[in-house]
Write a protein that binds this DNA or RNA. Structure first.
Length: 336
DNA sequence: AACTCGTGGCT
DNA sequence: TAGCCAAGAGT
């Protein structure tokens, strides 16, 4: 007993009338649905759209993606964040070509075995592209269902299990599971919003338990924020012929493989470089989850050639072809 | 189970 | 403006 069938129909009707015209909704190509779902993980639609268009232009098919060097994929991802997604996408494309004949797998177990594909993403792709009766539970659906059924309390494993079960009952009986899943997400994104939900135009408001008790604004409770840590770092800007010296991050996880400006510590020391570091000419603020960076920018002079391999001089115009974080572009923009 | 990973838009 | 949050996955 979740939403009666007539309400599911009303939700679907609402969706067909109100859904946004998004690029990945113009196709049922499982490859395109997959790419969009990976990009949309923890990332807003508005930010994703231009990246998605560019990405599909660069890599129109799973085979094109599979044969592209991971660095090109990472470069196309630059600025989107959560860079591991790009590496997973690359690796998964090769698995799809190698083991699944170039088609995104139909079986849930096979989909879940792909790197970067979890329960949400598998359900989304298989229901939208193939019509599979699988539920999705993202932030939107969790909010909609917990309001609809007055699922109170903070996030917990038990709470998530309950919400997955509710989502599963819906997907099991819906006329069109893919559309129903998207309808729930669209409703959460545009009507049943975290703050000030537009209950007046909600097709489910009559059945909404939170609405009935006036609790729609307090369910679900917002998570306790963790303290952010302030971090101060400095970078050296070494120029040569209008190009900038960058180095490739070797860090195993954090933005690994991305090109960045060399860091300078106290005394002007920098890994692998001998530098004469000048005074700070700019400061750039940048946030990484739970960390706030304050980056001071120092013009610097090379005292010795940098080691080969890890370093490169890059013209600003070529920056787009290298994997870089948005921080690099912010710093370079601050110099203009 | 709690923590990690990026970024930009919004309030 | 400083914090909140977004179509989560992996460990």
């Amino acid at each position: 007993m979740t939403i009666p069938r007539s309400d599911a129909t009303r939700l679907l009707d609402w969706y067909r009338r109100n859904r946004r015209d998004l690029p990945w909704r113009r196709s049922r190509d499982s490859y395109r649905i997959w790419v969009s779902e990976i990009m949309l993980q923890q990332t807003t639609v508005r930010v994703v759209v231009p990246y998605y268009r560019r990405f599909i232009r660069l890599f129109p098919t799973v085979r094109a993606l599979a044969s592209a060097r991971p660095d090109r994929v990472l470069a196309a991802w630059s600025g989107l964040g959560y860079y591991r997604r790009a590496r997973h996408l690359s690796a998964a494309a090769r698995i799809i070509v190698g083991k699944h004949a170039g088609r995104f797998p139909l079986r849930v177990e096979d989909a879940l075995a792909l790197p970067g594909v979890g329960r949400y993403t598998a359900g989304a792709i298989l229901s939208i592209a193939y019509g599979a009766r699988l539920p999705v539970l993202d932030g939107n659906v969790a909010r909609v269902l917990s309001r609809l059924h007055l699922v109170r309390g903070a996030d917990s494993a038990a709470r998530r299990r309950r919400l997955w079960r509710l989502a599963g009952e819906l997907a099991a009986t819906a006329p069109s599971p893919g559309d129903l899943n998207q309808a729930l997400m669209e409703l959460g994104a545009t009507v049943c919003t975290p703050a000030a939900p537009a209950c007046a135009v909600c097709p489910l408001s009559r059945r909404c338990a939170a609405r009935a008790s006036g609790l729609q604004e307090t369910i679900p409770p917002s998570r306790r924020p963790r303290a952010t840590v302030e971090v101060r770092t400095g970078v050296a800007v070494v120029t040569r012929g209008g190009r900038y010296l960058l180095r490739r991050r070797s860090n195993r996880d954090l933005m690994h493989g991305l090109w960045e400006l060399p860091a300078v510590g106290r005394g002007g020391r920098s890994d692998g470089l001998r530098l004469a570091v000048g005074r700070c000419v700019a400061t750039v603020r940048h946030s990484i989850t739970y960390r706030r960076l304050e980056v001071s920018v120092h013009p610097a002079r090379l005292l010795a050639e940098p080691p080969r391999g890890g370093y490169r001089f890059v013209a600003p115009a070529d920056l787009g072809r290298l994997p870089t974080s948005s921080l690099v572009r912010k710093v370079l923009a601050a110099l203009v």
